[in-house]
Simulated assay, not measured.
Amino acid sequence: MSVLIAAAALPCGLLIGLLLGALGGGGSVLAVPVLVYVLGQSPHEATAGALVVVTVGAVTGLLCHARAGRVRWAAGVTFGALGTAGSYLGSRWSAAVPPAVLMAAFAGLMLVVAALLLLRGRSERRAARSPRPSRSARLRTPRPDHPDRAHPPHPALRSGRVAVTASAVGLLTGFFGVGGGFVVVPALTLVLGLEMPVAIGTSLLVILLNSLTALATRAGTGHLDWPLLAGFAACAALGSHLGNRLTTRLPAQVLTTAFATLVTLLALATAAAAVPRLWPP
Rank of each mutant, 00 (worst) to 15 (best):
L262I: 15
N244H: 00
H241A: 12
V275I: 13
L255K: 08
N244K: 05
G243Q: 01
P276N: 02
G243N: 05
A274E: 05
H241N: 13
N244I: 04
V263P: 10
T248K: 11
T256H: 13
L246V: 04
L262G: 09
T256L: 15
T256I: 15
H241T: 09
R249W: 01
P251I: 05
T256R: 13
T248Y: 07
L250T: 09
T261E: 03
L250A: 12
A252L: 09
G239W: 04
T257D: 14
L262V: 15
S240C: 06
R277H: 10
L238Y: 09
T264D: 00
A237L: 02
R249V: 00
R277K: 13
V254H: 10
A271L: 03
L262P: 12
Q253D: 14
F259S: 09
L265F: 09
A274C: 12
L265I: 11
P276H: 00
Q253G: 03
A267K: 10
P276Y: 06
L242T: 10
P276E: 05
A252W: 05
T248A: 12
L268Q: 00
P251M: 03
T257E: 10
A258C: 13
A269D: 12
H241D: 09
V275M: 07
H241K: 14
G239D: 09
G239I: 11
G239P: 06
T270P: 01
L268S: 03
A269G: 10
G243V: 02
F259M: 02
R249E: 03
R249T: 08
F259G: 07
A236W: 14
A271Q: 01
L238C: 15
L268Y: 05
R245F: 11
G239Q: 10
H241Y: 15
A274W: 02
N244W: 06
A274R: 01
A236I: 06
T270Q: 03
V263E: 03
T257Y: 15
Q253P: 11
V275R: 08
A269Q: 15
T256F: 13
T257W: 11
T270C: 01
L242Y: 05
A273D: 07
H241Q: 15
T261Y: 12
L255M: 05
Q253E: 07
T257G: 12
R277S: 04
T257F: 15
N244Q: 06
L266D: 08
R245S: 12
A273K: 06
A273N: 04
S240T: 02
T264I: 07
P251D: 01
T257N: 14
A267V: 00
L262T: 13
T248R: 04
L250R: 08
T248V: 12
A236G: 12
A269E: 15
A237K: 05
A267I: 01
N244C: 10
A272Q: 11
A272W: 07
T270H: 01
T270K: 00
A274G: 02
A269K: 14
R245H: 07
L268V: 10
G243T: 00
A252Y: 11
A258I: 10
V254Y: 14
A236D: 08
